[in-house]
């Protein structure tokens, strides 16, 4: 653990690296979820006819919607 006096340097650099990476991952994921949610909301706000057109024309739109529905 102490690594001949170098422990504090080694451990601090590893902890900093992986802590920062973890926080960054969490933030990226949060933004992604936020956008998915907003997208789903926008679709819900469309009229039934428009919604049908969008989902039929865009596979991506329906895919986003389905992953969002899975997570709730």
């Amino acid at each position: 653990m102490s690594m001949g006096g170098y422990g504090i340097f080694v451990w601090s650099s590893f902890v900093i690296t992986f802590l920062v990476c973890g926080v960054f991952y969490y933030k990226t994921r949060k933004t992604l979820k936020k956008y998915e949610k907003e997208f789903a909301k926008e679709i819900e706000n469309l009229s039934a006819e428009q919604k049908k057109i969008v989902l039929e024309n865009s596979k991506i739109a329906s895919k986003i919607l389905s992953t969002y529905n899975k997570t709730i």
Binding site: Y25, T31, L32, Y35, E36, E42, L46, S58, I60, A61
Partner: peptide, 26 residues
């Protein structure tokens, strides 16, 4: 691998953002 993961998530976010913008145009 970590970079690829973050990149894919960010790229996905960007695509959704564009799609959302297109929705508004309807």
């Amino acid at each position: 691998l970590y970079c690829a993961l973050i990149f894919l998530m960010k790229y996905k976010t960007e695509i959704i953002r564009i799609k959302k913008k297109n929705l508004k145009r309807i």
